[in-house]
């Protein structure tokens, strides 16, 4: 029970941290290449604990992201839902991929996410984003191994303390 609670704290903490990182102000040149932290955390938890992270959670998380970002209500929701769906579909493989393959998969996911954003923006009649817009997926993918290993380690420690 305790262990579950610790896991829950970790889960909530990472989600909160992802939101903070998503909001964190950066110098203007770095702003364009800010990785999609929400997606990275969501991918991790979708791979590791699918019972906790379903499409519904992704949708809600997306709504929260929308409220925080204040752009267009539903945009993040749509993006994260799509992301969660794909991850959950391929979870069985993703989970046992070596890290570098996972990284490639994450890269593909984030790239797909960017395409979704482009579509949404296109439909809502906004201007096309600048080229730096496409730098975010590689950065996010490059960060993935660290996110994955860090979170895995944290979870392992929690488990070890309980045991």
């Amino acid at each position: 029970m305790n262990r579950l609670r610790a896991q829950s704290w970790l889960f909530a903490g990472t989600v909160l941290l992802a939101m903070l990182l998503q909001l964190m102000p950066l110098p203007a040149p770095l702003l364009q290449i800010k990785p999609y932290w929400l997606a990275l955390v969501l991918i991790y938890w979708a791979i590791e604990t699918p019972d906790r992270v379903g499409l519904g959670f992704a949708f809600l998380l997306g709504l929260a992201g929308d409220v925080l970002a204040g752009q267009l209500l539903g945009e993040h929701a749509l993006r994260l839902t799509v992301l969660a769906f794909i991850v959950l579909r391929f979870r069985a493989r993703l989970r046992f991929f070596p890290v570098w393959q996972q990284t490639l998969a994450v890269f593909a996911l984030l790239l797909n996410d960017r395409i979704v954003v482009m579509m949404v923006r296109g439909f809502s009649g906004e201007a096309m984003p600048p080229p730096a817009f496409w730098l975010s997926p590689p950065v996010g993918a490059a960060l993935w191994p660290f996110v994955f290993i860090l979170l895995d380690d944290l979870r392992a420690r929690l488990r070890g303390r309980e045991a």
Partner: peptide, 19 residues
């Protein structure tokens, strides 16, 4: 059913409607 296509469609539709 966590990743069933139906749910996906429902959520996507909800997101689109919201947008």
């Amino acid at each position: 059913g966590a990743a069933s296509t139906l749910r996906l469609i429902v959520y996507l539709a909800a997101a689109v409607v919201l947008m």
